[in-house]
């Protein structure tokens, strides 16, 4: 019996998927190693990220920012970079913020980790640490996004009215509206910005209920991004950072600014040259997204290679069969 000889391309087509997983793990791990840590991939931020950074940097520093953090560990790869960048910008500008979630009971634990990390980073750099009650409030978890966002839209004082936090000066639990963070907030429109960091459709719920009442801006995963961009184009959301790339965009502008002076590295926004935003004045700029981005490129190159090799293999095999 004559056996058909298997060619090189056919062998490649039949590679065990576990070998591909192994190559992916090795590639991404090697590119994360410290010897590549100082390599920065050049970036030209997306217009939606530029709009987001401009909004963040032009928000008045005497007004509170609302941060709705709707993600957990499963999307830390993208959302941690987003929240870290967002909080670094707010803290560098000494803007007070409230943080809460309407999506997942596990989300407060995750955003508290991020706040703790950035606070200890600021402490090590000799910068002011953000303090609960004085500088920010942790309102925890609100179940039922629809109901909570309706309540926030109609009366934020009732929506958050039952929440208390410890006043460090007296050690007593007090209503959060007695804190310097929310004392001047009577409606959600009193917040300069309503930021949503999400891995879910909670942005849809927010646009449905809040887009006429608050200035919304979004940082979301690559899965949510495509459905969120129309919100930006229609002006319902004032800025969007999508996925790891969006995180890097913000970090890049934190380092080099937007339309900022004659710096050749500053992000230029065609048609919006008058919208100038400087780099952040203190703290880290390039961080998690920048660290991940080289590895991310490695993974994408692998994917493209696999698609090309697979297609060549398919054509060669088909040609052999017809010959």
């Amino acid at each position: 019996m004559k056996t058909e000889k298997t060619g090189f391309w056919q062998k490649l087509q039949n590679v065990d998927r576990r070998v591909l997983y192994l190559i992916l793990v090795v590639t991404t791990s090697v590119l994360l190693s410290p010897m590549f840590a100082n390599i920065s991939i050049p970036d030209d931020p997306e217009p939606s990220s530029k709009a987001l950074y401009y909004k963040l940097m032009s928000a008045p520093d005497n007004k509170t920012v609302f941060v709705q953090s709707d993600w957990t560990i499963s999307t830390r790869g993208e959302n941690a970079a987003h929240l870290e960048a967002l909080l670094r910008v707010l803290m560098s500008r000494h803007i007070k913020f409230v943080i809460f979630t309407v999506a997942d009971p596990q989300a407060p634990g995750v955003y508290r980790d991020v706040i703790r990390t950035i606070n200890s980073e600021r402490k090590s750099e000799g910068l002011k640490e953000y303090k609960l009650w004085e500088d920010y409030l942790d309102l925890k978890y609100f179940p039922n996004a629809e109901g909570t966002l309706n309540a926030i839209a109609s009366d934020v004082r009732k929506a958050f009215g039952g929440v208390t936090a410890k006043d460090p000066t007296t050690g007593q639990d007090r209503n959060v509206f007695e804190s310097p963070v929310l004392a001047n907030v009577r409606a959600v429109s009193d917040a300069s910005l309503y930021m949503i960091v999400t891995a879910s459709s909670s942005i849809d719920r927010a646009v449905e209920r809040l887009n006429e009442k608050a200035t919304l801006a979004l940082m979301c995963t690559g899965v949510i991004g495509p459905s969120a961009i129309p919100w930006f184009q229609a002006g319902q959301v004032k800025g969007v950072a999508v996925g790891l790339r969006g995180g890097l965009d913000v970090e890049y502008m934190m380092k080099h600014g937007l339309n900022y002076g004659s710096d050749p590295k500053t992000a230029r926004w065609a048609g919006h040259e008058s919208q100038v935003a400087p780099p952040v004045s203190e703290g880290k700029s390039l961080a998690r997204a920048n660290l991940y981005f080289l590895s991310f490129h490695g993974a994408i190159i692998l994917l493209i290679l696999a698609v090309v090799v697979g297609n060549i293999g398919m054509f060669v095999t088909r040609k052999k069969r017809t010959a």
């Binding site: 992916l24 793990v25 991404t28 791990s29 994360l32 190693s33 499963s74 999307t75 830390r76 790869g77 993208e78 941690a80 995963t221 690559g222 899965v223 991004g225 495509p226 999508v242 996925g243 790891l244 790339r245 660290l291 991940y292 590895s295 991310f296 993974a299 994408i300 994917l303």
Partner: peptide, 27 residues
């Protein structure tokens, strides 16, 4: 073309998850 772009964005999100786990383990 739109679905292709959406799928591409989704794949990138999955890669970010793997990279984050590798970062967690190695770094």
């Amino acid at each position: 073309i739109g679905f292709g772009a959406i799928f591409g964005s989704t794949v990138m999100a999955r890669f970010a998850l793997v990279i984050d786990r590798m970062f967690y383990i190695w770094i």
